[in-house]
Amino acid sequence: MGYKLNLENLNIALKELSKEYRIFAPKVLSGEGTFSDTDIVRYGEIETVQEIEFNKKSQFSYKEVLLPIRQTLFFFTEDQIKEAEVEEKAALIFLRSCDMNALKRIDDMYLRNGFEDIYYKKLREKAKFVLIGCEESFDSCFCVNMGTNKTDEHDAYLKVSGNYAFVDIKDSSLLEVFASLTKEEVEVTPDFVEENEVKVNIPENLELKVMNSKMWAEYSERCIACGRCNFVCPTCTCFNMQDIFYKDNKKAGERRRVWSSCQVDGYTVMAGGHSFRNDKGQRMRYKVLHKVYDYKKRWGYNMCVGCGRCDDICPEYISFSNCINKLEDAMEEVK
Rank of each mutant, 00 (worst) to 15 (best):
E197M: 09
A217I: 11
H290C: 05
C262A: 15
L158D: 01
L123A: 12
I318D: 04
W216E: 02
V288H: 02
F245N: 12
M284L: 13
E116R: 13
A25H: 01
I118M: 15
H154V: 03
V28G: 05
R96Y: 06
E197L: 11
V210H: 00
N249E: 11
A252K: 05
A225K: 15
M241E: 14
M331D: 03
K15T: 12
Q50S: 14
V292Q: 04
A156C: 03
A84K: 12
S173L: 10
F94M: 04
D171I: 02
M100K: 08
F74Q: 06
E218Q: 09
D168E: 14
A271Y: 08
L67K: 06
L208V: 01
A271L: 12
E87F: 07
Y62G: 00
E187I: 10
L131K: 00
K19Y: 14
S30A: 14
R105F: 11
K82A: 14
N9F: 10
L66K: 04
Y246F: 15
S261V: 05
Y246M: 12
R105T: 13
Y246R: 11
N149H: 10
M215F: 06
C229Y: 01
R255P: 03
D139C: 07
K326Y: 02
E332F: 07
K209S: 09
T38Y: 12
A127R: 04
F231Q: 08
E45R: 05
Y293E: 00
K247Q: 14
F94V: 02
P315F: 09
R285Y: 04
L175N: 11
E254K: 08
E328S: 03
P26W: 00
N9I: 06
I81C: 09
Y286T: 06
E207C: 05
E47M: 08
F35D: 15
E64R: 08
F35M: 14
E64D: 15
Y219C: 01
R298A: 13
I52C: 01
N149G: 02
R255S: 07
N9H: 14
E332P: 01
K89I: 09
L92G: 01
K297N: 15
D168F: 01
C141F: 02
E204I: 05
G266R: 10
D39G: 05
S172K: 08
I46M: 03
L181M: 11
I52D: 00
D107S: 04
I244L: 15
E204R: 06
K199M: 02
L131I: 04
D108T: 04
N278C: 10
T189M: 13
E197H: 09
V269W: 09
I169Y: 00
E85G: 13
T148G: 04
K128R: 11
